[in-house]
């Protein structure tokens, strides 16, 4: 596909869902299962601004009609959990500028920063151990047999089940959350990295051997540089997965970070803020990935697709 139309389609891929959302929000006869009361009329329990089911509204209207009293008025509306796009856009701004309800609570940007730190440390610590173990397991049969069976077993245990344990051992603050990200990432990471390592063209190792490389040089001068671009791509994908563990992690112990913000706002029925926060997670994730992808072209100039060819 030519670059221009590729760009256009990329835009379209974001535009289509937004368009669908707008249609449902702004076209009154699409969905809109509720009525927002603008004038309660003679119905005693209707109040202005109240959302009622359309059937109930119709029933009450008929009742009032029959008895000749003032009719209630209202307009079709969507449930409160589906705010319209413009409300979310506004919330994007106000969520950051609204002071927290209580002194002890955090601003949105503080919650976000807390989440990013949890992700970072969980992922960093996991990679610190997981990548070397993966490379060893992918290079040497011995380590593969030593590590992989247990890891293969362990990765089927859902990370969140260790929540209570993590809190018991590590307290209620950041540490158990980081531990959950670690557990969620680490076991997959070792297996994925070892697999990537095994995919390295064995003839490169043979060529190096005929050039006099010993075992240490094979590992340091051939295996590691040889898998680096693929390893980088693996880590990008794993980082995306780490975000999915964030939400569970942050519910453990003392609820914190962006998850705390979301649950709190949902409790206040500020669904526009909830949507804004969810989208911020998406935007942070996508931006990080785009930056990492762009960097990869700089770091690995020998990659065919990176040469601009």
């Amino acid at each position: 596909m030519p670059a221009k139309s590729r760009f256009f389609v990329t835009i379209l891929s974001f535009l289509l869902p937004v368009l669908l959302w707008s249609l449902i929000s702004y076209v009154p006869w699409l969905w809109h299962p509720k009525v927002e009361i603008s004038d309660p009329g003679a119905v005693a329990y209707f109040k202005q601004g109240m959302l009622v089911d359309t059937e109930l509204f119709d029933k009450e209207t008929l009742k009032q009609e029959a008895s000749g009293k003032a009719l209630p008025e209202g307009r079709p509306a969507n449930p409160i959990y589906l705010p319209a796009p413009h409300e979310v856009v506004v919330a994007f701004y106000t969520a950051f500028t609204t002071e927290p309800k209580r002194r002890s609570e955090k601003w949105l940007h503080e919650s976000l920063w807390q989440s990013i730190q949890v992700i970072f440390w969980g992922f960093f610590l996991s990679s610190l151990v997981g990548v070397p173990l993966g490379i060893l397991a992918g290079t040497y049969d011995f380590f593969s047999r030593l590590f992989e069976p247990f890891i293969e077993f362990f990765r089927y245990l859902p990370a969140p089940v260790f929540g209570a344990l993590a809190v018991a051992i590590l307290g209620i603050h950041e540490a158990p959350k980081i531990a959950i990200i670690f557990i969620g990432t680490f076991f997959q990471q070792v297996l994925i990295v070892s697999n990537t390592t095994r995919k390295l063209d064995p003839s490169l190792l043979e060529a190096a051997q005929t050039l006099g490389a010993n075992n240490k040089a094979l590992l340091l001068k051939v295996v590691i540089p040889g898998i680096l671009p693929d390893l980088y791509r693996d880590l990008r994908i794993l980082l995306g997965w780490a975000w999915t563990y964030l939400i569970v992690a942050e519910l453990i112990g003392a609820s914190s970070g962006i998850t705390w913000f979301i649950t709190q706002q949902a409790r206040y029925k500020n669904f526009d803020n909830v949507f804004a926060a969810i989208m911020i997670i998406g935007i942070i994730g996508l931006t990080t990935d785009l930056i990492l992808a762009a960097l990869s072209k700089r770091i690995f100039p020998w990659q065919r697709n990176a040469a601009g060819a």
Binding site: S203, A207, Q209, T210, L211, G212, P225, L228
Partner: peptide, 20 residues
């Protein structure tokens, strides 16, 4: 016994190190 730099080898596939 085993590979060594006293024998050079050229393979059919291009076994150059792509990162160098």
């Amino acid at each position: 016994h085993g590979p060594g730099p006293d024998r050079g080898m050229v393979f059919q596939g291009y076994t150059l190190f792509p990162w160098l």
